[in-house]
């Protein structure tokens, strides 16, 4: 078998229907308000998968939900106090995952593997099939070329789709992807030399059409060697409204908090929820003492992505999705920070 196949666009729905039989299907859908979101599709006949727009949120919340009960606990009359795990992982097919979001998922795989496999995350992760979609045209705020996570990420997927106009080029990645291609071989034809040339051409064009010119490599090198000027931090801090939006839309912001939510006197749930290092209360200790001054919250976020993760994991954890650029009404985005670092 060759390493690439062709799926006629007319057959996309039936193929997706086949592979998601008995599973949940998540794919980009544009809703009635014009928002494109990775959404659960219950009826493929009445729902259009949107392969043209960038989903506004990443797939992070399917693996690390914004709020998730991880444990239930009970306190008996006699005082017995017991916990049990709540492990939820529905078999899910993700179709149309963009490279930046796949890169985010691969980063989460690393984060949730230390010091041991996080059971709640991996219950979902191991029940997932990831079908990625290369980006023929970068979106407005994208800079994944500079973070080396797109527009056509070459690894981490089960299957990768490339839109060749009237047909998709389909390539297997992980073992599960190959199995799917074998099981549903009747949908596919072997890709021709011309198909592969077309894909190569598309990739070249995509790489040359980024609207954002962001020097991530230079910023990483400078941050490894120099301090960022106080004025740079101050300028960004003055404009940050502490809303946490950037962390919430970020595919790789995984900080969380854990709280108890009592259901009754005798039982309750322990809930893991998204947190953001930009929140003033993130490091505040009991009694109100905060060992970390609030003006350093942005510093923590940007340096985590562009300095500490580089020293720990040898690559930036920014995937260049550009969502924080679009969401911040104060203009405190990572592109602005990187530019400021490069210019200073």
């Amino acid at each position: 078998m060759s390493a690439a196949y062709i799926l006629a666009k007319d057959h996309l729905k039936s193929f997706v229907r086949k592979i998601s039989k008995g599973s949940r299907l998540i794919a980009p859908v544009t809703n009635e308000y014009g928002d494109t979101l990775y959404s659960e599709i219950n009826c493929l006949d009445s729902t259009q998968i949107d392969t043209q727009h960038q989903p506004q949120s990443s797939i992070k919340h399917f693996f690390l939900p914004q709020q998730e009960s991880i444990l239930s606990y009970s306190v008996s009359q006699a005082g017995e106090y017991h916990f049990s795990n709540i492990l939820i992982g529905v078999p899910t097919v993700f179709f149309g995952v963009r490279s930046c979001d796949l890169a985010g998922l691969l980063y989460m795989d690393v984060i949730f593997s230390n010091p041991a496999k996080d059971p709640y995350y991996f219950k979902k992760r191991e029940n997932s099939i990831i079908i990625s979609l290369g980006c023929n045209e970068p979106f407005e705020n994208c800079f994944c070329n500079a973070t080396k996570s797109g527009p056509f990420l070459d690894f981490g997927f089960d299957l990768r789709f490339t839109d060749l106009g009237d047909r998709f080029l389909v390539e297997p990645g992980r073992k599960r992807g190959m199995e799917i291609l074998e099981e549903f071989a009747y949908f596919f034809n072997d890709a021709s030399e011309q198909d592969l040339k077309d894909q190569y051409q598309l990739q070249l064009e995509s790489r040359s059409s980024f609207q954002q010119n962001v020097h991530v490599d230079l910023a990483i090198k400078k941050l490894a060697n120099e301090e960022v000027g106080k004025d740079v931090w101050q300028d960004l801090a003055d404009r940050c409204q502490d809303c946490g939006g950037c962390a919430y839309v970020c595919p790789t912001c995984t900080c969380f908090t854990i709280t108890d939510q009592p259901v009754s006197e005798s039982e309750g749930e322990r809930v893991r929820s998204w947190d953001a290092c930009t929140f003033a209360g993130f490091t505040r200790m009991v009694g109100g003492h905060n060992p970390v001054s609030s003006e350093h919250s942005l510093r923590r976020r940007f340096l985590h992505k562009l300095k500490y993760d580089v020293s720990l994991h040898n690559r930036t954890s920014c995937t260049g999705c550009g969502r924080c650029v679009g969401i911040c009404f104060g203009g405190v985005d990572i592109i602005k920070f990187i530019s400021a670092v490069c210019e200073s």
Partner: peptide, 24 residues
């Protein structure tokens, strides 16, 4: 050292200090 911590295993981010986690 003492810090606000949620997970204790170096994941939640709260005790982050430079590239170190106080908890691990």
């Amino acid at each position: 050292m003492e810090r606000h911590m949620k997970c204790g295993v170096g994941v939640c981010g709260h005790c982050h200090m430079d590239d170190k986690m106080i908890c691990v």
